[in-house]
Design a protein around this nucleic acid. Structure first.
Lengths: 150, 150
DNA sequence: ATCAAATTAATTGTCCGCAATTAAATTGAC
DNA sequence: GTCAATTTAATTGCGGACAATTAATTTGAT
């Protein structure tokens, strides 16, 4: 009875993605330190800068996050003066997230800071495109698989 | 004064990696459900199957995790009968992690289960290689950047 | 108009990830 | 041998991520 061949961690896609994700996190945490934003808070703000006002549900659809994650995160953003939270008048169930004037004003500063940092990384457009391509292939396959195994 | 161009979340590498990481997590969580292992517990076990016995520090170097993460995770693995934790006799500071006989015996079952699930994903060897390549490029650049900005 | 089904956030509980601190043991310069 | 510096885990505190549950509201079939 032959032993199943060892799975080597450092050859696993999942582990590379897991590792790169943590390092991206650290990278953005540094870049965003002047604004006192975490990475998840930053991607929430990115979405809001583009689409606000949004309900919690709509924001969650963009970010693939549920209210269990977003509610406390948004309360933190509110307490730091980035957003406001209010119940919709037409549907009391939904909470509307809007940007404060302060957040509007800080938009360009945040964008410049992040873009500058990212440029320093020195990824070529080809490398960026290649990564984007493979990531979306994998995302699709994971979606397909996860859906077929509900 | 022209506004800085909007950063679109869905075009950001970091967000793709962040999203794929979460989906991988979900994928493995499902695959590993029969063994009651989380993904981080699984990668710890992978490393231990390959290299045990290991100190917490050594394990952390393989996984890029510190004792703040590993100590509670290892206590959970211990309480579920996967590993034992004991102080080294030669150096009382270090904790040695060893596999239980039960964990040794389950190795092949876990490997088979994970390999089968992963095969169902249907990534071609080319896709796997491409992803691996881009991930390691990005990892290197992030390392370089993060090191130069200590 | 009524009420069951659905939708939407919030809450709870568990696990991860990491920075910062603490505690204990070891090492090495003297 | 002594003691400061180093090393190693553990602890604490905070912020995610998510499953499961709860509470409130709305919708829609009747």
């Amino acid at each position: 009875m032959p032993k199943t061949k060892q799975i080597h961690l450092d050859e696993q896609l999942c582990f590379q993605v897991y590792t790169v994700n943590k390092k991206f996190n650290h990278f953005y945490q540094q870049a965003l330190k002047p604004f006192d934003l975490t990475y998840p808070q930053y991607i929430a703000m990115l979405t809001l800068w583009q689409y606000a006002p949004l309900s919690v549900k709509q924001l969650g659809e963009y970010l693939h996050l549920d209210s269990g994650t977003l509610t406390p995160l948004l309360k933190r953003l509110e307490s730091h003066g980035w957003i406001t939270r209010s119940r919709s008048e037409s549907d009391e169930r939904t909470v509307i997230i809007e940007l404060t004037e302060d957040a509007q004003n800080k938009r360009d500063d945040v964008f410049d800071r992040v873009n500058n940092c990212f440029d320093i990384l020195g990824l070529t457009p080809e490398e960026k495109a290649a990564c984007s391509q493979t990531m979306s292939t994998i995302e699709t396959k994971l979606d397909d698989y996860n859906e077929s195994h509900i």
